[in-house]
C-alpha cells in the first residue's frame, strides 16, 4: 500500500519536469496549426533547440544565450518548412518529416563533441509560500524559470488568441485564406510568422530539455516529444489551456515510468519506456466529433476529419 502512495506522489512530482519541454512544443505547434499549417518538423526544431542551446551554453557559459540560441535554431528549421510549403507548395507532412530527419542528423553531427560536456544549466527556483502547498507545491513550484514562463504562457496565448486582433487574424487565416485576404490581411506572411514562432517555441522546449531537465546533450534526446506535441494539439482541440493538461498528462506518464523503474516493478524497462507513448495513443483515440469541429478549416485538407 505504501508503495502505491510512494509511486503516486513521485509521479506527481515528476510530472511537471518532463512535461515542460513538451508543453512548449505543443504551444508552438498550436500556433502553427491555428494559422492553418501543420509542422511535423517540430521534433527536429526541438532537437535543434536542445543541441544548439547546449552548445551555446557550453561555449559562452551563459544559459540565457543558450536558451536564445535554442529558439533561433528551432525557428530557422521551421522557416525552411515555411518556405517549402508556402512558396514551393510541397506536401506539408512529407516536408515536416524530412526536416525532422534533417534536424536529427545535423544535431547529431554538431553535438558529437559535446556529449560529455557539463554545464551549469537552469536550476530550480523555489517559489516561497506556493511551494509549501501540500503535494502540489513541490511538483509545481520547485522548477526552473522556463517552467514558470510556460505556466503563464498558456493563459497568455489563450487571451491573445481570443481577445486581440492579432489572434483574430491568426484564426481567420487558419480558417480561410481567401476571407482573411479579403479582410485586408496578408495571409502568407501571417503563416510564415506563425510557423517561425512555432519553431522558436519548440526550440525553447528543446533547450529546456537539455539545459533544465537533463543538463546533458545526447543524440536524439527528444525521443519523439515533438510528435507527441502534434498529438497533444489535437487532444487539446487547439486550445492552449487544454494543451497544459495534455502536456502534464504526458509528463506524468514519464514520471510514473521512472517511479516504477525505481521501485523495481517486475516489468521489462523496455515496456515501461513505451508507457508515455501508449498513453498518447490512448489520448488520440479520444478524438471526438468536438475535436473535428474545433479543427481549423485550413488543416482539413491535410488532416482529414473522421466523423
Amino acid at each position: 500500500m505504501n508503495d502505491i502512495w510512494l509511486v503516486l506522489g513521485g509521479t506527481l512530482t515528476g510530472a511537471v519536469g518532463p512535461g515542460i519541454s513538451v508543453l512548449y512544443a505543443t504551444y508552438g505547434e498550436l500556433i502553427t496549426e491555428r494559422a492553418g499549417r501543420i509542422n511535423l518538423g517540430i521534433e527536429g526544431s526541438m532537437l535543434m533547440g536542445a543541441c544548439f542551446g547546449f552548445i551555446a551554453t557550453v561555449e559562452t557559459g551563459s544559459v540565457t544565450l543558450g536558451v536564445l540560441s535554442g529558439m533561433v535554431g528551432g525557428s530557422l528549421l521551421s522557416l525552411v518548412l515555411a518556405y517549402l510549403v508556402i512558396y514551393r507548395n510541397t506536401n506539408q507532412l512529407a516536408t515536416g518529416f524530412a526536416l525532422t530527419l534533417f534536424g536529427a542528423g545535423i544535431t547529431a553531427y554538431a553535438g558529437r563533441t559535446y556529449v560529455d560536456s557539463t554545464i551549469n544549466g537552469l536550476n530550480p527556483i523555489t517559489v516561497p509560500i506556493l511551494s509549501e502547498i501540500p503535494k502540489l507545491g513541490i511538483a509545481l513550484f520547485e522548477q526552473d524559470v522556463l517552467a514558470y514562463i510556460a505556466y503563464i504562457l498558456g493563459p497568455v496565448l489563450f487571451l491573445g488568441l481570443h481577445y486581440t486582433r492579432t489572434g483574430l487574424s491568426l484564426k481567420a487565416v487558419g480558417e480561410s485564406i481567401s476571407v482573411a485576404y479579403a479582410a485586408g490581411r496578408n495571409p502568407y506572411m501571417i503563416q510564415i510568422v506563425a510557423i517561425a514562432m512555432g519553431g522558436a517555441l519548440a526550440g525553447l522546449g528543446g533547450a529546456q530539455l537539455s539545459l533544465g531537465f537533463t543538463h546533458t546533450w545526447s543524440e536524439g534526446m527528444t525521443v519523439g516529444r515533438g510528435f507527441v506535441a502534434v498529438g497533444l494539439v489535437i487532444f487539446a482541440m487547439w486550445s492552449p489551456l487544454r494543451a497544459m493538461v495534455g502536456a502534464f498528462l504526458f509528463g506524468g506518464a514519464i514520471g510514473l515510468q521512472l517511479q516504477l523503474q525505481t521501485i523495481g516493478a517486475p516489468v521489462s524497462p523496455f515496456i515501461l519506456d513505451m508507457l508515455p507513448y501508449l498513453i498518447i495513443i490512448f489520448v488520440m483515440s479520444l478524438w471526438s466529433r468536438a475535436a473535428a469541429r474545433a479543427m481549423p478549416e485550413g488543416l482539413k485538407g491535410v488532416l482529414r476529419a473522421t466523423t
Binding site: 481570443h162 481577445y163 486581440t164 486582433r165 492579432t166 489572434g167 483574430l168 487574424s169 484564426k171 481567420a172 480558417e175 480561410s176 481567401s178 476571407v179 482573411a180 479579403a182 479582410a183 485586408g184 481549423p296 478549416e297
Partner: peptide
C-alpha cells in the same frame, strides 16, 4: 459569403473593420 463559419458573428465583423487597436473589444 465571405464569412468564417467557425468564428462568431462579432468576430467576423471585427475582422473586416479597419484596425482599432490591438485589443479586441467584444
Amino acid at each position: 459569403f465571405a464569412l468564417i463559419p467557425a468564428l462568431t458573428v462579432a468576430e467576423n465583423v471585427a475582422l473586416f473593420l479597419p484596425d482599432q487597436g490591438m485589443v479586441l473589444s467584444r
